[in-house]
């Protein structure tokens, strides 16, 4: 494992459970409750190829956060983990290469597919770089 998986979710138990699962899968996981904190962490020079982003966050919405992260770190890949039923992927996010397969809806009964996706994205990122 060559990089961190960044998790941004304001729901503590979700954050912790995802972190636990992915760590059990052998990944390095950094989890933050807000975009701001994640940005601070990233600015400190962390290398992070994959981000699992919640949508409804205390400081901004997930879409905006993805746009900012993409702007700052174009190589970062995103997975969306949302509890909102009506969420649909904005068009500009699609142009970044996101599609519906990146969207995971809460509650996740099984975290294995998400973990697999993270692993796959990280692996592809690794190969490109």
């Amino acid at each position: 494992m060559t990089g961190w998986v960044l998790i941004v979710d304001d729901e503590e138990m979700i954050r912790e459970n995802l972190k636990a699962y992915l760590e059990d899968e052998g990944m390095g996981v950094a989890a933050f409750e807000s975009v701001t904190l994640a940005l601070y962490w990233l600015r400190d020079g962390a290398r992070c190829p994959v981000c699992v982003m919640d949508m409804r966050l205390p400081d901004m919405d997930g879409n905006t956060a993805i746009r900012i992260f993409h702007e700052l770190y174009p190589e970062m890949e995103f997975l969306i983990h949302t509890g909102s039923s009506s969420y649909s992927l904005p068009e500009d996010l699609r142009t970044m290469g996101l599609d519906d397969s990146r969207v995971y809806r809460k509650p996740l009964q099984d975290m294995a597919p998400l973990a697999a996706a993270v692993r796959a994205l990280a692996a592809s990122r690794e190969m490109r770089s």
Binding site: E11, M13, I14, N17, Y21, G83, S85, K106, P107, Q109
Partner: peptide
Amino acid sequence: AGMAHEINNPLGAILQGSQNILRR
């Protein structure tokens, strides 16, 4: 729709928590 977000998060915690517990 209104309450989905509020319910899904705790449900997520329950389901993901259960999964992690069983795994661990």
